[in-house]
């Protein structure tokens, strides 16, 4: 079931000069059921230059406080307008959209969650879900610099966290696929969200290591409902909508 709701902004946390954490609540009703890896489409008001909604991953669902958290990177006029929201403002949200990450396959499984930049967004909710279902999430977060590593303390609540930065200012220097944890530990499967080159590199690692792997895509989209057919990804079944057949795909279904 999908909903169109007016949420109230409860907090706007500025995490670094480019990223904010938007915390929203629905004063009228409990948040709908959301699967980890699903996304929302928010309406951007007060931005003359933008027109379409903005798709954003569900970062975290706080059932106790009835809060939905969205991690936003300011990349254009729309996301900058979102960063200007104030506590008490209203945001119109279409949710929940898409398929989400795989459910737990077996108790105690070790799932490597690899995130790059703002692509870490859906992994917090997924990590929480895995913990709650007796699986073990291990986070591997990549960023350009220390400042770009988002929500580190919050990830640590749910499992071990390993970090790579391109300049070496935090964790190991280099890309996520170069981190020593990949040699020193074993995993049952991998879930990835981040820039496409990073996801492709991790997919290549997963194939080589014979590990199941799913990736969360963020193709440009308009409706989020499977109506406009704009966000297509070429798969082994042909062009499919990322918004309804994804955003999460098993790498075996892609043509990468």
């Amino acid at each position: 079931m999908k909903y169109l709701r007016n949420f109230t902004v409860t907090a706007v946390e500025h995490l670094n000069p480019r990223n904010i954490l938007l915390r929203l609540t629905d004063p009228a009703a409990p948040l709908p059921d959301c699967h980890p890896g699903q996304f929302v489409e928010v309406k951007v008001d007060g931005s003359d230059k933008t027109f379409l909604r903005r798709p954003l991953s569900i970062h975290f669902v706080d059932r106790v406080n009835n809060e939905l958290w969205l991690l936003v990177q300011m990349v254009g006029d729309g996301t900058r307008a979102l960063a200007n929201l104030q506590t008490g403002n209203t945001l119109n949200v279409l949710l929940p959209l898409g398929n989400g990450f795989s459910p737990v396959q077996q108790q105690g499984e070790r799932v490597l969650l690899v995130g790059g930049g703002v692509g870490v967004a859906p992994l917090l909710e997924y990590g929480k879900y895995l913990c709650e279902h007796h699986a073990t999430p291990i986070f591997l977060l990549g960023a350009r610099t220390r400042e770009d590593v988002l929500q580190l303390d919050r990830f640590k609540q749910y499992g071990e966290v390993y970090v790579t930065t391109e300049d070496g200012s935090l964790g190991e220097q280099g890309f996520v696929t170069q981190h020593s944890i990949l040699q020193n530990s074993t995993f049952d499967r991998i879930s990835v969200c981040g820039p496409k080159p990073m996801m492709q590199a991790v997919a290549q690692y997963a194939r080589k290591s014979n590990l199941p792997c799913e990736v969360s895509l963020e193709n440009l989209m308009a409706c989020g409902l499977g109506a406009c057919l704009c966000c297509v990804e070429k798969t082994k079944k042909g062009n499919v909508c990322v918004c309804t057949d994804g955003p999460v795909f098993n790498i075996n279904d892609l043509t990468w």
Binding site: F51, N219, L220, A222, C228, L229, C230, C231, V232, N239
Partner: peptide, 12 residues
């Protein structure tokens, strides 16, 4: 199959 991605861009 339609055309390749990208198929859409926002304009004024």
């Amino acid at each position: 199959e339609g055309n390749d991605y990208p198929r859409m861009t926002e304009t004024p």
